[in-house]
């Protein structure tokens, strides 16, 4: 059965909202009798919500050809059912990027395979999870540091460093126990002087980069005026979720998490000629 994908996506989206509202603890529809399991006659994809007043009955086919292994392999399609979501299917941190032949059956449904579950529950292969659904999952804030520590000089680069790592949290997702894995994909910087930046990496110290102090780095910033600034770094996470088994599915959207603000005092530096250092000869000219 071929259906307009947009229509299917819309129907699924409608069903999910109903399913979430009614908090289905257990899928009770679409069961396949043992007789059908034995014969191999489980009906084609169908799902229904009895209490929500929304019935969904549709067959799905992916664009790819039929795989002989019993399930179609189309690992890259992700949540291709949604117009704006197709790009996220290849999100970073995918479980096994090199294992191409391993089919992810979550992304496809065979026509003769029953979707015996309520849309929006874990068994729904077209379940779409957005970052806004991750209310029970709070990813770690990145750590933040800078060079020089706490101060800078007008006109010279100050080196800012933030670090976040991949981590997995357990919790309840859409009413079901699940794991969510957060992968930092970028960093946002707000320097407190109106300037903002986005970087893919969190940066590193001058020493680690093999650069002299006050060098320009990917994450450095030059303050143009003296003053006290509050610098805020955020890690931008992409997320994946899974309910059981090894297969991760992408969560739509990204999630910025801020580190605590970092106070920076920026001062002017003037070059003067002095007679010995000002500490040994404070009364000297220029001090």
């Amino acid at each position: 059965m071929h259906l307009n994908w947009t229509l299917v996506a819309f129907m699924i989206a409608a069903s999910i909202s109903v399913a979430v509202l009614s908090q289905p603890a257990h899928a009770e529809t679409g069961s396949c009798s043992r007789a059908d399991v034995q014969i191999g006659g489980c009906p084609a994809a169908n799902g229904a919500i009895n209490n929500g007043g929304v019935d969904l009955s549709a067959g799905y086919e992916t664009g790819g050809g039929q795989a002989s292994g019993g399930q179609e392999a189309d690992g890259g399609s992700g949540s291709g059912g949604e117009g704006d979501g197709s790009g996220d299917g290849n999100g970073p941190g995918g479980g096994a990027p090199g294992a191409a032949p391993v089919a992810d059956p979550l992304t496809v449904v065979r026509d003769d395979f029953t979707v015996g579950c309520i849309p929006g529950s874990p068994c729904d292969p077209n379940l779409i999870v957005r970052v806004s659904d991750l209310v029970n999952f709070q990813p770690s804030a990145p750590t933040q540091a800078m060079e020089p520590r706490g101060w800078s000089v007008v006109g010279l680069p100050a080196n800012f460093i933030a670090a976040a790592s991949v981590h997995t949290l357990s919790g309840t997702l859409l009413g079901f126990p699940a794991e969510v894995r957060f992968t930092p994909i970028g960093y946002r910087w707000s320097y407190g002087d109106g300037a903002e930046a986005r970087t893919t990496g969190g940066g590193a110290t001058w020493a680690a980069l093999g650069l002299p102090e006050f060098s320009d780095t990917a994450t450095s910033h030059v303050f143009r005026r003296a003053g006290v600034y509050s610098v805020q770094a955020s890690a931008v996470y992409s997320a994946e979720f899974r309910f059981a088994g090894p297969s991760w599915r992408a969560v739509q959207g990204t999630l910025p998490v801020s580190a605590g603000p970092l106070g920076v005092t920026v001062g002017d530096a003037r070059t003067v000629l002095v007679n010995r250092t000002c500490t040994t000869n404070p009364a000297g000219p220029g001090c």
Partner: peptide
């Protein structure tokens, strides 16, 4: 057994 539904997920 209350319900037995086909699960589309991997890893089972």
């Amino acid at each position: 057994v209350a319900s037995a539904d086909v699960w589309e997920g991997a890893g089972v």
